[in-house]
Computed example of a mutant assay.
Amino acid sequence: MGNRQPNTSGLLNKAKEKKVKTRQKVEQAIKRMIKYQQNINFNSVSELAGVSKTYLYNNPDLKERIEYLRKQQEGVPDVKQVKRNVSDKSKDIIIAALRKRVKELEEECKELREQAKINYSDIYNKL
């Protein structure tokens, strides 16, 4: 018949190892996301760590940490948001400054052309 006292210690040890490795993958993913200032949420962490979202939700400490980091990031705008929020007034100021610069360069170019004409006429008269 069947073994009444099966030796499951090896199986239990492998399960513990797998649990530790999975947790390390999640921790490394979170650290990497913090380092590179990426958005932290359950989807992004699960994708980067290669674990399911269910795993993250079923581990209360990981769930709490991800929620905390996600809330922390809500108030901090990223670079793309800042660029989008440039107001029309500041755009108008930039446009005005660029137009002024173009006008100055056009005047300088005109003066240089006049000077070149004078120089060419002097050279021609010397021949």
Rank of each mutant, 00 (worst) to 15 (best):
Lys117Cys: 13
Arg70Cys: 10
Lys25Tyr: 04
Thr22Gln: 08
Ala29Leu: 04
Cys109Pro: 00
Gln115Glu: 15
Ala29Met: 06
Lys21His: 15
Gly75Ser: 10
Thr54Phe: 12
Glu107Gly: 01
Lys80Leu: 10
Thr54Gly: 13
Ile34Pro: 01
Lys25Glu: 03
Pro60Thr: 11
Thr8Val: 08
Arg32Gln: 14
Val82Leu: 08
Lys83Thr: 02
Arg101Asn: 09
Ile123Arg: 13
Leu48Lys: 01
Val45Asn: 07
Gly50Ser: 05
Thr8Lys: 03
Asn3Ser: 12
Ser121Cys: 11
Glu114Trp: 12
Ile34Trp: 01
Ser9Pro: 03
Leu62Asp: 02
Glu114Ser: 14
Gln73Arg: 05
Val26Phe: 00
Lys35Cys: 03
Lys53Asn: 15
Gly2Glu: 10
Gln5Asp: 02
Thr22Val: 07
Leu98Glu: 12
Thr8Gly: 01
Ser121Arg: 15
Ile66Phe: 03
Asp122Gln: 12
Leu11Pro: 00
Asn119Tyr: 13
Glu67Arg: 14
Gly50Thr: 03
Leu48Pro: 06
Leu127Ala: 06
Ile34Asp: 00
Phe42Asp: 05
Tyr120Glu: 14
Gln81Cys: 03
Ile118Leu: 11
Val51Phe: 04
Leu48Tyr: 02
Ser46His: 05
Leu56Thr: 08
Ala15Pro: 00
Tyr57Leu: 12
Gly50Asn: 02
Met33Gly: 02
Lys35Tyr: 01
Asn85Pro: 03
Phe42Lys: 00
Lys18Glu: 09
Ala97Ile: 08
Lys14Gln: 14
Val26Ser: 00
Tyr120Ser: 11
Asn85Thr: 01
Gln37Ser: 09
Val86His: 02
Asn13Ala: 13
Arg32His: 11
Lys31Cys: 06
Tyr36Pro: 08
Lys110Gly: 06
Leu98Tyr: 12
Leu112Cys: 06
Ser44Pro: 01
Asp88Asn: 10
Glu17Asn: 13
Lys21Ile: 15
Ser87Tyr: 08
Arg113Trp: 12
Val102Ile: 07
Glu47His: 07
Ser46Asp: 08
Ile40Ser: 04
Lys103Thr: 06
Gly75Leu: 09
Asn41Gln: 03
Leu112Val: 09
Gln72Ser: 09
Gln73His: 01
Gly10Leu: 08
Leu69Pro: 04
